[in-house]
Computed example of a mutant assay.
Amino acid sequence: MGTSSKRLYYLDSLKYIFCLMIFWAHLAGVFWTLCDPRPALRQELERLFTYPLSVLLDSSLALYGFCILSGYLASFKRTRAQHLLPQLLARYLRFVVPFFFINLVAFILYYTVGYPTAEASALLHNAWLATYYTHAPTIPELLRATVTLDGDLNGPLWMMKYILLGTCIIYLYNALEQKLPLRLFQFSCLAVFVYSFFHLPEPNFFHVHLVLMGLILRKLDDALKAWLTQHEKDGHPLLRFFFLLLVLLPIALDAGGLQRVLYPFFRAHCPAIAPVFIWSAYWVMLFSFSLIVGVMNCPPLQRALEWAPLKRVAPMNFAVYLVHFPLIASLSLHLYLRLVNRISYSKVFVILTVVSFAALFLTSWLYEQSIGKLQDKIVKKITARLAM
């Protein structure tokens, strides 16, 4: 029991950090990195976007890690074949209920304070921002976005349907694993996984595979822990610090090392294979996976992630993800419109960053304590009825 609890604590913290990275990437994207041309910033502020802090701007690294961890945690769900359908329905409802409430909040915000994305995008020269909240949502659209897990009212939630599908496949896998010849079943599933990864039905479908990588992570983690325990008994107490490299190396490469070091090196010495080292989503998947494996097998990092203040706020990681974009599109943009052209943009950027982060921490806590608890009660009541 202690092991699973400990694991949950540091994985919660890791998911929380991933969600903060996504918030920072979106906030910076709105007010600087995705602007063309970019507003003038003081040199010391521009360092926030250079190596190694540039890794914090990679929302893909954080999102992929979030997907992998979602699959990993779902893999612990023991599923019996006769209970599979109710559990899949319960899983769907665990997504739909939070979707409804955050969509309702976003809907109300639109018709009260509003989302000045069009005006702000014109001033910021940010075409990406202009794609959000382009028309007034209706009640039927709110309900449709909820039941289909669409991102119309809260853009970054588009990937939740892939997490849902991936975790449902894991539930199905766990149910069938108990009924079919183990090795043949595992090999067949792995073959389907690899084949489908290179034959996606649509471009974003690989997010399902990221979730399924969480199941692979579970299998790998069990084997690694057994292997490490045996080797530590044989006199290799520092072996786990190797996994620190599995955390630091992908961070260094993702922050710019891949483009600035590896690719130029291979282009100069082995041009035939140099294209392999061009930055791509495949590399980011590997970085996210490596980072998580390293953390899961490096006790010093786990203890750092179990730092008491971090452990206290970490369970709010999902609330952070739910509220962060409506907050940027309303509060942050309204504040920007009040400040722009009145003071230097560097001062505007600092004020926006400080206020937005403070509002995120407060809003996510309030959301978790109010709507979060309400939606949890609703889901528990519904799932309890399904289990009868």
Rank of each mutant, 00 (worst) to 15 (best):
V96E: 10
Y263H: 13
H334W: 14
I343N: 04
Q43S: 11
M285C: 09
C168Y: 02
R91P: 12
R240S: 09
Y195A: 15
P140I: 01
K381R: 15
A329F: 11
S5H: 08
P326G: 08
L165T: 07
L352K: 07
L228V: 01
P315I: 02
R47Q: 14
A74N: 08
A120W: 01
V247E: 13
H334G: 04
A62T: 00
K377L: 15
L335V: 02
Q259D: 12
R267D: 06
L253F: 06
M159C: 09
R38E: 14
A145F: 00
Q230A: 15
T79E: 13
M285F: 00
R218W: 04
P264D: 11
L244Q: 06
K15H: 04
T3N: 12
I382H: 04
A127L: 08
H334K: 10
L374H: 07
F193Q: 14
P137C: 03
V211D: 03
A90Y: 10
H236P: 03
L310C: 06
G155L: 09
L366K: 02
A145P: 00
F318L: 15
I139Y: 11
A106W: 00
F289K: 04
M213R: 05
I68C: 08
P237M: 08
V194L: 13
E232S: 00
A145E: 09
A272Q: 13
L149T: 00
Q43C: 06
L253V: 07
L374N: 04
Y336G: 00
A359K: 13
Y171N: 12
Y64M: 05
F95T: 00
L56G: 09
G71F: 02
L331Q: 05
L104V: 07
L184N: 05
N154K: 05
H231A: 15
G114V: 14
D152P: 00
